[in-house]
Amino acid sequence: MATNVKYYCMAFLKDGTPSVRIFANTKDIEKNNEKYIAELKQKVKKMTEEELFVVDIISASDYDLYVNGDGTNTYVRDMETGKPKIYIPPEPTKEELQAQALANLESEYNAQKEGFKKDLDTANLAGNTEAIKSIQEEYMEFNAAYEEAKNEILKDE
């Protein structure tokens, strides 16, 4: 990142996620102007309603990692070291996995259902009562299999 800014004042959430930030004056930071730094941190805190865990002065290179990542990874603050670390998402909960499985099943169900509708419309237009009956029976079996699959996803293990 090409910039003439050397330092930022950035706020972080409890999990290390970066929040609001502003430029910091290089001279005041390098001279460790405590009054300026304290006022700058207060200014950042007032920029959001989020519950901030820490507000700190960071380098432009750290800022770039937090905001842009490295092209492959995203970064959060390591609360022990105060440095950027690669964000590793938490394992999905049972509820999240269940919701994802239900969404996938629902999507598959709706696509198949549309196929049945088209086949039934074609059979109706052709007046093919044998095909209509066959499609209806197949659709009933399909619905039963869908309900069984849905119940399997929802049951507690």
Rank of each mutant, 00 (worst) to 15 (best):
N4S: 14
K6R: 13
F12G: 01
L13Y: 04
G16Q: 01
T17M: 07
S19C: 07
I22Q: 09
D28Y: 07
D28M: 10
D28H: 10
I29D: 00
I29Y: 03
E30R: 01
E30T: 01
N32I: 04
E34M: 10
K35D: 11
I37G: 00
E39C: 04
E39F: 05
K41P: 04
M47G: 02
E50Q: 09
L52I: 08
D56V: 08
S59W: 07
A60Y: 11
A60S: 15
D64Y: 15
Y66F: 15
D70E: 09
D70F: 10
Y75A: 02
Y75D: 03
M79W: 12
E80P: 08
G82T: 09
K85N: 05
Y87L: 11
P89F: 08
P89Q: 09
P90N: 11
T93H: 07
T93I: 05
K94M: 13
L97F: 12
Q98S: 07
A103N: 10
L105F: 04
E106V: 14
S107T: 15
E108A: 14
Y109T: 01
A111R: 15
K113S: 09
K117C: 12
K117F: 15
L120F: 10
L120Y: 12
D121A: 14
N128M: 00
T129I: 02
E130Y: 01
S134F: 00
E137V: 08
M140H: 10
A145Q: 09
Y146R: 06
E147N: 10
K150N: 05
E152A: 14
I153P: 05
